[in-house]
């Protein structure tokens, strides 16, 4: 499903060239789950962005669902994302002017999916928010907002889901509920899951784990719990 080969990302700053990622390679099979861990600034979010086709590496390649993302233009990568990719973000990224229902409908509408409303209602009900459809994000708690984001991610039925610190803004109990939900849906829809986290508990629920330090892979192992 996802294959990265020798990914390197360098940026030029006033202080000189900075290497954020260095020769990172990894592979995730369909239906599998991968946790990318590491301290702040270790390059995990940059890696996630490149794997999801949001950003381009300085060198190396990413093959996602048989598409070489590094060889595609932004327009074509967008098409790949539209067809195969879903996202869950640390800061939820819900649009404040839209209701919970509209937030979930948005990607479906963007891709011209029929019955966007019905589908959005179904997924919101699935994450337990059937009584919050017409609420605006600021009327929802953090956990509820992340559940809306999860409903949005799964509503477009992606082959692979990228999650960036999905519990980073939540307390541990709410975080645990959200994680349960994420893995349940992952199983139900047989989605491939790539997530960035510094939470041990979450990382251990994935089948594979890659630890980064200073942009390099320092540890790679299958998780015992998985």
């Amino acid at each position: 499903m996802l294959q990265a080969q020798a990914l390197t990302k360098r940026v030029t700053t006033a202080a000189g060239t900075l290497t954020i990622l260095s020769e990172v390679s990894l592979q995730v099979s369909a239906g599998d789950s991968l946790a990318i861990t590491g301290a702040s600034g270790s390059g995990k979010s940059t890696l996630l962005g490149i794997l999801a086709g949001l950003d381009q590496p300085s060198s190396g390649s990413v093959i996602l669902h048989q598409h070489d993302l590094t060889a595609l233009s932004e327009e074509k990568r967008a098409r790949v994302r539209a067809e195969h990719v879903g996202f869950v973000f640390q800061s939820f990224q819900l649009l404040p002017g839209l209701t919970a229902l509209e937030n979930v409908m948005m990607p479906l509408e963007l891709h011209g999916v029929d019955n966007a409303r019905g589908k959005a209602e179904f997924f919101l009900t699935r994450v337990g928010l059937n009584d919050r459809l017409q609420h605006y994000p600021q009327q929802l708690s953090g956990g509820e907002q992340q559940r809306v984001a999860i409903a949005r991610a799964f509503a477009s039925e992606p082959d692979i889901l990228f999650a960036d610190e999905p519990t980073g803004n939540l307390d541990s109990t709410t975080g645990a509920h959200v994680i349960d939900l994420l893995f349940e849906l992952n199983r139900e829809h047989n989605t491939t899951l790539v997530l960035v986290t510094h939470e041990q508990r979450l990382a251990e629920r994935c089948r594979q784990r890659v630890s980064l330090e200073g942009g390099k892979v320092v540890e790679r192992r299958p998780c015992e719990a998985a």
């Binding site: 999801a52 949001l54 932004e74 327009e75 967008a78 098409r79 790949v80 994302r81 539209a82 067809e83 990719v85 996202f87 990224q93 649009l95 948005m106 990607p107 963007l110 891709h111 477009s156």
Partner: peptide, 16 residues
């Protein structure tokens, strides 16, 4: 800006 970034991450191209 955020809304556009989100829509793009969800697969909307520049032209769209």
């Amino acid at each position: 800006v955020d809304q556009v970034a989100l829509m793009k991450s969800l697969g909307a191209g520049c032209n769209k």
